[in-house]
Design a protein around this nucleic acid. Sequence first.
DNA 1: CTGAAAGCGCTAACAG
DNA 2: CTGTTAGCGCTTTCAG
Lengths: 338, 338
Amino acid sequence: MSGRRVTIRDVAERADVSISTVSHAFSGSRPISAETRERITRAANELGYEPNPSARSLRTGRSGIVGLILRPRFALVGTSDRAETFNRLVGSVATEALRRKTGLIHVPDIDDPRAAKVPMDGCIVAHPYSGDRVLTEVLRRHIPVVTVEEDPERPELPWAVRLDYPPVVDRLLDHLKRQHASDIMLLTGTESNAWNVRTRESYRAWCRTNGVPARIDELSEGLTHEEAAQLIGPLLAAPDRPDAIVVATSDFAALIARVAAAQGVRVPDELMIASFTDSEHSRTADPAITAMDLNHENLAKEAVELMLARIAGAEAPEKPVVISPVLHLRASTLRSPH
Amino acid sequence: MSGRRVTIRDVAERADVSISTVSHAFSGSRPISAETRERITRAANELGYEPNPSARSLRTGRSGIVGLILRPRFALVGTSDRAETFNRLVGSVATEALRRKTGLIHVPDIDDPRAAKVPMDGCIVAHPYSGDRVLTEVLRRHIPVVTVEEDPERPELPWAVRLDYPPVVDRLLDHLKRQHASDIMLLTGTESNAWNVRTRESYRAWCRTNGVPARIDELSEGLTHEEAAQLIGPLLAAPDRPDAIVVATSDFAALIARVAAAQGVRVPDELMIASFTDSEHSRTADPAITAMDLNHENLAKEAVELMLARIAGAEAPEKPVVISPVLHLRASTLRSPH
DNA sequence: CTGAAAGCGCTAACAG
DNA sequence: CTGTTAGCGCTTTCAG
């Protein structure tokens, strides 16, 4: 093909200037006469010159690339609720990184020794688990890290963007109570991340405050819809069926709505349903399902901003950045006044 | 923080060997005595040494990173059918890249001058448009490229993995005909990529062969469900309603099924429905919808393999690699024998 | 089996 | 305003 890559030296030669002049012409880091700049630009274009990013990084100590590690194990292989979550977050981070002129590299598994080590200035770890193994490794390597949601066992890491669940969970539960729910059940996820841990805590606290017994069961994020349906069917048929269910994932919320319809349980009159993620499933279910939106766009925006600040040498913030989830009240929890 | 990054020099000093010995100990590219190797390994661990990827790339001329450019503009912002497609492809490419010890970098917009230039050995461009602008730019820069699906205007590029639509489209249409469809309508997408262009061509060819008029209308991939429903409603209410609709995207197929149900049009007896992507929507629709699966996993696998071969200096293949889409016949096109 | 040294392409002092 | 030069950290000849 094209014999050799063209370097800054070739451009300098052709424009009849020194290589440092070429370098500065590109970076704009010192004044260059219009005429010289013009000659350099032409030479570069004619030769098809592109600066070598590795050489630049080696010299400057910066690659202009941040890594993204998405921890939830069901992000890729799970159902479409997880897929949509994954998508929105990755998409938002990518968009924001682009806006900030920063490359984004997908780091599938940092401590797979086979994985190519890539030059990153820092790394965003999204939705870490309790005592997250990968987060530990990144810290050990002294890679500047920002987390999206905190590691529940390491709440002290200040370089984090987190969601403030309690007020929103309270608002949801208060709302259900006002709609005359008397037996609100929580179907929590089984992954040990902040989303599950914190929402569960908030639910428990609310129950305590309101003097009602907590009623919690698990519905793993990893279940297929078939498996989940197997568990939901009996629950809705049981004599002690709750009159409101808050379920972690929105696709299972939609599934509950379908099972309820099949069993002749009326939503919201006999059963209210809400979920802790929002997606196509909750929006288009019949009836539409009340859901807490995780505000991925803002999480991503703040995370990238924090990352760049950290790379630029900013002081550690006092506290993590706090984002509020957004509650969408929909028909599944709106009983008509009798 | 940690004063300075630790380099190969520090390790050499501490292990009391030369830096070249350290280098070779890591790369295994020449015999090292067990004892020396042991000293080096210990020193490296104690110091927390990690080779600098930029220095390595600069020296070797390889970064071990390939870029992924996903072209369809609705991949990120579109509905969940597009999201699922995006997901499966990115996920599959990432997985395969990992298996091959290759880093994967997300390239959002190659010719945005603001975007950081990243070191990539090559670049996968997925689902290019006709005369794709970004593909042109990548070629101009002499970046080794492999496309997933061909640019319809550049079918001659041999470094491509493509889907072989005609046989599968024929099988689908033959199947519909055997189920006594007499008026099969195609609702094609409006994006000018191979998927739309080739399936449309195949449909036209089949109509010609079978001596029936082609009946094509457009349904843009960019429409919201509401907008699409506005167009579908009248179509199903019209006196010349087709008795089978093949629609590009699976979520619109599911939407058609819902609109049909609402209008009392029985599927599949009065109307058969099929789609040219498969997703959660087609699988879980009622009735489940016949769909063509784009086989993203195999596309990704072959694309990564081709990319690595190309980087390694392999000869250009004679022809693109050809993958077959997979047809899933489901209830939406299975009429009970009368 | 090990060491010395050249240099990948670029940036940033420093010196005009 | 422009040129010279010293490395960034690593791999890889070439010599032992």
